[in-house]
């Protein structure tokens, strides 16, 4: 499946079907990140159940140094 991830076109492996799966694939399960799918912020408690579909626009953001 092809999604737009942080602004880039990315082909995801077939076994990635949920937000949890996506975060695991990038080794981000232990990191402090926030996920937005098609403009909707996904609550942490929904990572396992939130399905990812072809064409989704996904943002994974975190805190960086700033003033």
């Amino acid at each position: 499946m092809r999604v737009t991830l942080n602004g880039k076109q990315v082909d995801l492996a077939d076994d990635i079907v949920s937000v949890s799966g996506l975060l695991s694939a990038y080794q981000l399960r232990e990191k402090i990140v926030v996920v937005e799918v098609n403009g909707e912020i996904i609550d942490r408690s929904c990572y396992d159940t939130k399905a990812i579909a072809d064409g989704d626009r996904i943002e994974i953001v975190h805190f960086v140094g700033g003033g």
């Binding site: 991830l5 942080n6 602004g7 880039k8 990038y26 080794q27 981000l28 990191k31 402090i32 990140v33 926030v34 943002e59 994974i60 953001v61 975190h62 805190f63 960086v64 140094g65 700033g66 003033g67």
Partner: peptide, 19 residues
């Protein structure tokens, strides 16, 4: 204060100050 930015997925394990 912090800023909110896209995570660099080419290097997701980059050290982060928050950690």
């Amino acid at each position: 204060t912090f800023a909110v930015r896209r995570l660099n997925l080419d290097n997701p394990n980059e050290p982060n100050f928050l950690e």
